[in-house]
Design a protein around this nucleic acid. Structure first.
Lengths: 152, 152
DNA sequence: TCATTTAGTTTCGACCTCAAAATAATAGCA
DNA sequence: TGCTATTATTTTGAGGTCGAAACTAAATGA
């Protein structure tokens, strides 16, 4: 790979995420959901619609500590996006679910990502999509090699 | 594009950045540069080796306010990564440069990114690289469309 | 000279995060 | 059963990152 291509791809890779977050944040400010941050939306996304995961499960998925998630959930409950459901079988567990309002923003966020991926892969055939997926998997493998994830 | 492919690519896109940051942060902790955060390294990267950009220029590049950069530069100066250089022609401008220590970490960071991009594009020919670049540019175009950048 | 503009800095408050201690519930075992 | 250890979550305290707005210093220009 020649030097300038490497540089351009590196540039794109490093700016793209920040741009996604910036656009999402801006969209929120203009929507009916002005009282929620992008981090909080990601928590809503991880909590998801039907599964009622526990606090620890969601925290692991978001790669944050349970303590951090607890305060986040406190805010999301107060703002009526999330509800806590105590397990009856083992009352130490807290299961998390979305309220009506939470489901609304969950769908809006999912829709944004759907559009985003579609535009990303615009005009591409299956073979080309495979190349892209391969590249992303290469990258994940490199990162995994550079610093193995503590599995669970 | 079929549903499961879209889902996998979305998953990869959304986790990859967090993984990059996590790996970079971990590498710093294990290196000789334990007193610098990944955000600060990105500031060092934006300040770069030879140009002596002004505070505002660097802030714009990092998409943060000049005020935020000022406090960041305060820390980086105290930790001997960055130096302030007052312009003689117009004494309002502060030009930023790297110290010896700053240049060391600049090169370490650049090297990490070089390795990363190389592994990303492993085994790919020019045509395949073009497809990837095209996809990333598609994504940037979508984001630009979703929320135009205030050009300067 | 004096108002305006420009570059940078300071201050304040908001948000996100973790580590460690505290709390609550359950499981295991003598 | 009663005690201990373990597990899940919450609370507390502190630090990093960030922007908005007020402020300072320097240059410009009428």
């Amino acid at each position: 790979m020649d030097y300038s291509t490497a540089k351009r791809i590196n540039q794109l890779l490093t700016t793209v995420y920040g741009d996604i977050v910036r656009v999402e944040e801006l969209a929120l400010r203009k929507s009916q959901f002005k009282d929620i941050s992008i981090k909080e939306v990601h928590a809503v996304d991880a909590i998801s619609m039907y599964e009622h995961k526990t606090t620890s499960e969601v925290a692991r998925e978001l790669r944050i500590t349970p303590g951090t998630l607890t305060t986040m959930v406190n805010h999301l409950v107060r703002k009526d996006y999330v509800q806590r459901i105590r397990s009856d079988d083992d009352r130490r567990f807290v299961r998390l679910g979305l309220t009506h309002r939470g489901r609304l923003i969950y769908r809006a966020h999912a829709s944004f990502h759907r559009q985003m991926v579609e535009s990303f892969a615009k005009d591409m055939d299956d073979e080309q999509l495979q190349i892209i997926e391969k590249a992303l998997l290469n990258l994940e493998a490199f990162l995994e090699f550079a610093s193995p994830t503590p599995n669970k």
